[in-house]
Structure formats: structure tokens, C-alpha cells
């Protein structure tokens, strides 16, 4: 898909949102404002869509965008906030990022620049726009438990539970649900996926895992906080002929929905987010802030649970990714 088409779609979505809110009687504008948009990376679908949603909406509201991309390096992403600070933008939308950004948020706040985060709760942010992570965590826990009949051994890729609050919520609540299934055992130690090269890294780790746990001793592999590693996991399962093992993950990007929609896919459950809408909503929140409205610390954007092949096809169509047969 070309960049142009993507922006066109983003713009379309944004205008829908804009029209929607205008309908609600709001007269929001970012005209004359320069809004910094910092994103951790644009390689992955989720990040890119959230970024595009935020940028398109800021522009649709008449604001000027100053965009910085961390190239999927949390360190660079954090440093980019310094640039926004030095450039003196009016507000910052910060998408994702790990603990390294906290001091940067604090510095922005000290300089009187409000920070709006996406998927990154922080004491220094005015508002965090995110999916309902609590619902995501519990739902995927229930779906997975159902898929393996309420008992068995589960491996989990869980590198970010301690580092990112949203992942703490998602993985923590997944475990909270599983605590009620005494027959389910989470294999220790948990696996840590790579951030930058997730699918390939997960593929290798899964192949290692499979040789460690022969046929019949492993029932499910779950990705605790996102879905990119699941692409590599499914590949590895197919390579090893172990598609009896169930795969679950979160985020529901188009790549993983496509995998779920295949016949006999081991990838059985997911919870889809609406990243473009999240980015767009965050930008709307900036405009609301400047319009003097009081914002709640968290804005939740709806998620769509996906259980099985049929629902994957339906959600894929519903989110405007196209049609799958």
C-alpha cells in the first residue's frame, strides 16, 4: 500500500471522526498550534496507524505537525522529546515508549508543554488514550483457556510486563484469569521477545521451545502484550508440523487477522485494537484541552474481541482492512 493511499485512508478516518465530533456540537480547532508527534517507530502496523491517525487529525483540525520517529529504538524515541522541547511546540503527543521517556515528559511538563500519551500511562501526561487493556487481558485469558479445554501447559512471550504499564495490565490480567484454572500451568521461565525484530526472533525462540517440549507436552503459546511475535510463532509451528498448539495474542493487526482467517490456523484468539482511532482520539483530546475542557486521565477506545476464523474475517472487514475469503 502506498504512503499516499494510507494517508488518504487516515485522512478519511480522521474526517469521519471530526464530522462525528462536530455533530456532537463541539467546535474544536488546533489552528495556529504546533503539535509535536513522537512515535517509537513506524515499521509496525500498530505504531504507524496510531501515528497516521494522530497526524491526520491534527492537520484536519488546522494544526501544524512536527513529527519525530524513533526508528523502533526506545532510546532514540526518548531523545526525540528533547528535540520537541527545544523546538518549543505547543503540545506533544507521545506514542508508546518505555521508561526512558519519563524524565523527558517531566522536562516537557516543567517547560509548560502539555504531554498527551498513547498507550503509555504516565504521571506527567495530561491524558493517556489507550485501548481498554483490562478488558483485553481478561478476554484473551478466557478465550485461551477455552481453546485448550481449561487445562494444559502454556508458554508466554512476556518481555514487557515489567517495563511497560500497559503490558503489565494485559499480561497481569491474563494471569489473573488463569489463576482460576488450576489445570493450566505457565511454563517458567517466561520467554522474552525482541522489540526490534520480533517475528524472526520469536520464530527462532519457538523452534527452540518445540525441541524442548516434544509433541503432547505443550498446549498453547501466548504473546502477552502484542501480536508481532505471533507471526513468527505460527511460522515455526507450521515448519515443525505442530499446529495442534494453540496461539493467542493481542492487538489484532491486519497481518495477524489474515493468519487467523486461514483454514486450520493454530492462531485462534486475539483482541483487535483500533490504532488509527486511538491516535486520532488523542489528537482530539489535545484540541479539547486547548478548548478548555477538563480531560479524564485515561480515554478508552473500544476493542473488538476476535474468537476464531469467522470472527477474524468479520473484524478484518469491519476495521476497513478489506475482505478475506
Amino acid at each position: 500500500m502506498s504512503i499516499f493511499r494510507k494517508t488518504a485512508i487516515a485522512g478519511l478516518l480522521a474526517s469521519v471522526v471530526f464530522a462525528g465530533s462536530a455533530f456532537a456540537g463541539e467546535h474544536l480547532s488546533l489552528s495556529g498550534k504546533r503539535i509535536g508527534v513522537a512515535v517509537v517507530g513506524t515499521q509496525h502496523f500498530w505504531d504507524r496507524e496510531a501515528f497516521n491517525g494522530a497526524v491526520a487529525t491534527v492537520e484536519a483540525l488546522g494544526g501544524e505537525v512536527m513529527a519525530v520517529d524513533g526508528g523502533r529504538d526506545n532510546q532514540v524515541h526518548a531523545d526525540n522529546h528533547d528535540i520537541l522541547l527545544a523546538a518549543g511546540v505547543d503540545a506533544v503527543i507521545s506514542i508508546l515508549g518505555d521508561g526512558a521517556v519519563e524524565p523527558k515528559f517531566e522536562a516537557l511538563q516543567d517547560a509548560g508543554i502539555p504531554v498527551f500519551t498513547v498507550d503509555h500511562p504516565s504521571p506527567f501526561s495530561v491524558n493517556n488514550t489507550t485501548s481498554d487493556n483490562y478488558y483485553m487481558g481478561t478476554t484473551i485469558g478466557r478465550y485461551m483457556a477455552d481453546a485448550i479445554g481449561g487445562e494444559g501447559k502454556v508458554a508466554v512471550f512476556n518481555a514487557f510486563e515489567g517495563a511497560l504499564r500497559i503490558c503489565g495490565i494485559r499480561a497481569g490480567l491474563w494471569k489473573y484469569v488463569l489463576a482460576d484454572y488450576p489445570g493450566i500451568e505457565i511454563i517458567q521461565p517466561e520467554l522474552a521477545e525482541e522489540f526490534a525484530n520480533a517475528p524472526e526472533d520469536a520464530r527462532k525462540q519457538t523452534l527452540d521451545l518445540l525441541s524442548q517440549y516434544p509433541e503432547g507436552t505443550l498446549d498453547a503459546i501466548h504473546v502477552g502484550c502484542w501480536d508481532q511475535p505471533a507471526i513468527g510463532i505460527v511460522q515455526a509451528l507450521e515448519e515443525a508440523g505442530r499446529t495442534d498448539i494453540v496461539v493467542t495474542a493481542l492487538d489484532g493487526g491486519p497481518e495477524t487477522l489474515e493468519i487467523m482467517a486461514e483454514d486450520g490456523s493454530p492462531f485462534v484468539a486475539n483482541v483487535a485494537q483500533q490504532p488509527n482511532l486511538i491516535g486520532s482520539t488523542s489528537a482530539m483530546n489535545v484540541a479539547r484541552y486547548f478548548a478548555g475542557e477538563t480531560l479524564l486521565p485515561q480515554t478508552y477506545v473500544d476493542v473488538l474481541p476476535v474468537n476464531g476464523q469467522a470472527e477474524a474475517k468479520a473484524v478484518y472487514a469491519e476495521l476497513g482492512y478489506g475482505t478475506l475469503d
Partner: peptide
């Protein structure tokens, strides 16, 4: 300086 810049150690900083 890496620790200071990132307020800790983040994986993946070596490539850049």
C-alpha cells in the same frame, strides 16, 4: 552516558 540518557538500560541501543 547510555544509562543516564535512557534512565536505565534499554535493549537494542547498540545498533544505532
Amino acid at each position: 552516558f547510555l544509562l543516564a540518557r535512557g534512565s536505565g538500560s534499554s535493549p537494542g541501543t547498540e545498533n544505532n
